[in-house]
Design a protein around this nucleic acid. Structure first.
Lengths: 100, 100
DNA sequence: ATATTTTTGACAAAATTATTCAAAATATTT
DNA sequence: AAATATTTTGAATAATTTTGTCAAAAATAT
């Protein structure tokens, strides 16, 4: 249930690494990583992939955290948030069946 | 299961209205409405509200179409699309319980 | 064939989002 | 507690994305 930011902050703290180090690996300013960890900025897909590699965790797990965070952000404040998510699920399932 | 574009195009055709007329009501260029109907452009929230009013259909229904379209677009091409939608649902539900 | 409607795409304007940087704040070490 | 290291903040700028306009081309209807 964790979001991306909390997840990678925990991992980074477990290894006692400063923002600087991880940020360097991602080739971004440490200020940005700080913001990503605290949910003030969105990570890019490539950054998520690199983070999974860096911390040696399953890429798809981190992508799910990241994507679901974005979805939650997108429906925030809407009364129909849940309904929209459910309908979106149906649409995705439907598209799968008819996609080559 | 219809998306927003298909829905409003059907409604417009039923009433035999040209793009021009509906676009004027929304105060946008007809080219934009054409693109919205064919899913090439995203409608704004306000436009969706106006469209519901114009065609006298339930606003929340149209908002669900619109929002779910955006969600589907956001997860498109991701292997973890379904999983992310499900996790997002959980997160929304969870947030609901602890929100004032 | 003419008139009407719709689609297309190039362009510009506006709005949103991302980045950089340095200073301020916080935490850690000595 | 001073010194050092780390993290956060926010303002300025840059880059990207979104939005709208327009006119011509394509499609459809009369």
């Amino acid at each position: 249930m964790d979001n991306l930011g909390e997840t990678i902050r925990k991992l980074r703290n477990q290894k006692k690494l400063p923002l600087r180090t991880v940020a360097a690996y991602l080739d971004i300013d440490q200020a940005i990583l700080s913001k990503i960890e605290r949910g003030q900025r969105n990570a890019s897909r490539e950054q998520v992939v690199k983070l999974a590699e860096y911390f040696k965790i399953k890429e798809s797990d981190l992508l799910v955290s990241w994507l679901s965070d974005k979805l939650v952000y997108e429906v925030a404040d809407e009364d129909v948030a849940l309904k929209a998510l459910q309908v979106a699920e149906e649409k995705v399932k439907y598209n799968k069946t008819k996609k080559k």
